[in-house]
Design a protein around this nucleic acid. Structure first.
Lengths: 142, 142
DNA sequence: GTCGTTGCAAAGCGTTTGCAGCCTA
DNA sequence: TAGGCTGCAAACGCTTTGCAACGAC
């Protein structure tokens, strides 16, 4: 049987982990690269992909897959929650707590172990400025 | 102002539309290409992409974006429903009707216009055969 | 010193686009 | 016949991988 290699503690991995420890909303690979580059000049994108994959495998991160967008990543220790996607400004918000109830029975023989919910609509900022959208590639915590 | 060009009725478009008219579960681009090729030998993948995009724009199709999978497409006239993703055999099932209730208030100023729900778990087939999964790249209607 | 990790560049994969010829209206 | 549509191949954007040099232990 294969024995798992011992994982090493490098500057790069530490920096990438730090990015997620200091940030709330879900981040894209590019976000992580940009932020971590502030600490480590020559950081390569492949390293970010590898580190994020490793952190996801070990359960520190989880992927946030929203329709039609790049995969984002966020800490896995935030507890069960869902995301709100503003259809005007494209921002992604986190909705604390699970506001969704899957009611009614599944078909016979089916067993649910989890669910993903994405709610679409207009965020507070876009609701206020009815005219042109803020159009920021932003995200927020709610 | 730009005037929209008049859309032509071609064999290719008809064949691609037919694929969706004769099929229940969501299809990938490759599914559509494979099926439509039975009718039109030299059909190119670019044509499938263009036709599916056009059919989506005109409201005949809608995209089904499930985490970690290719985008699938299904007829838009099926009414509001969600999808069940079997984590064992990877099959996608349609759940008729909306079995989900988004309760609780959104944060102040937020307005919801829609939602997507994906339920994960084990399908009836995989629940039965506890051992190795059927591992079909299949889908079903429930 | 060993061997996991890094950064670069190339490859991979799904999707889009440019273009010359085709075919519908 | 006009001009939208097609199939091909190239381009594209994101992600993964091969590899030699690097550096943690």
């Amino acid at each position: 049987m294969q024995k798992a290699p011992i994982e090493r503690d490098t500057r790069q991995k530490r920096a990438i982990r730090d990015v997620f420890e200091q940030t709330g909303p879900p981040l894209s690979i590019d976000d992580v690269l940009a932020t971590a580059k502030a600490k480590i000049a020559g950081l390569g994108i492949a390293t970010v992909y590898r580190a994020v994959r490793a952190l996801t495998d070990e359960g520190f991160l989880q992927a946030v897959d929203l329709p039609g967008r790049l995969t984002l990543y966020e800490r896995a220790d935030k507890g069960h929650h869902h995301h709100f996607l503003c259809t005007t400004c494209e921002a992604v918000y986190e909705l604390d707590g699970c506001t969704t109830e899957v009611k009614g029975a599944l078909p016979r023989g089916f067993h649910a172990t989890g669910h993903d919910v994405t709610i679409y609509g207009t965020c507070a900022a876009c609701g206020r400025t009815k005219r042109s959208a803020p159009k920021r590639e932003g995200r927020g915590r709610v």
